[in-house]
Nucleic acid binder design. Structure first.
Lengths: 111, 111
DNA sequence: TTTTTATGTATAATATTCTTATGTATATTT
DNA sequence: AAATATACATAAGAATATTATACATAAAAA
């Protein structure tokens, strides 16, 4: 897919996943999104890690590092502040999707 | 709406409108999109005009200037090359919208 | 009649975010 | 043994947006 379209949605995707999962690490997020979208959204590390760091710097995410054997994983979870912003971000996204549907008159998926 | 989400979709929106209308001028595009999306998408001039110029530079659009009284308007229309890219861009967009729906499980609009 | 709002195009400085490439390292599969 | 998957990270550069500014005419409102 043309990944240019994807621009601007990454933060909201991360926040959405973390609102449904207690804690996730970066690589897990990329795999989960790939799986959910049937291979359509492929998040690159160059986009993901800076995004996670930005969200952390904004105070929306906290981290916890865990050692698995000789390696480490950095788990991210929503802060209280992050939790509070979830509903706004999701309704902005819902509006955005609806706007795109209005412009492009796509057939919605069956729910 | 959070206009950050909007990033990346502008070119495709312009191309879509021009595929349905023989020729349009910049201001007309902003108004049409605002109307179609029930005020949700507000394209700023600072985003629009550079985008139109880029698409022209890429050979996807041609322009025609018309004088209306003491003023001028610059009409944009798809080139042959532009016409050829419409279907790809629209199917990329359809996939993108579907991907967003899969991640966010939004309620579709009634068609 | 003066002021505000709408119509209309354009650019420049700055900010943001993405792509692409690179780096490092362990674990697992072939 | 080599290739692939897992895992995090950053830097240079590209692309595109925001915000402000500029100029100008037309129409509507005060």
């Amino acid at each position: 897919m043309n990944s240019k379209l994807f621009r601007g949605s990454l933060d909201t995707i991360i926040i959405k996943l973390l609102s449904e999962n207690e804690a996730m690490y970066g690589y897990e997020i990329t795999q989960k999104v790939k799986e959910m979208t049937e291979e359509q959204f492929k998040i690159t590390e160059g986009a993901l890690y800076p995004a996670l760091h930005r969200l952390e710097a904004k105070g929306l995410l906290d981290t916890e590092t865990k050692h698995i054997g000789n390696r480490y994983r950095k788990y991210y979870k929503l802060t209280e502040k992050g939790e509070k912003e979830v509903s706004t971000m999701l309704s902005d996204m819902a509006q955005f999707i609806q706007g795109l549907q209005l412009v492009f008159k796509t057939q919605p998926i069956k729910s």
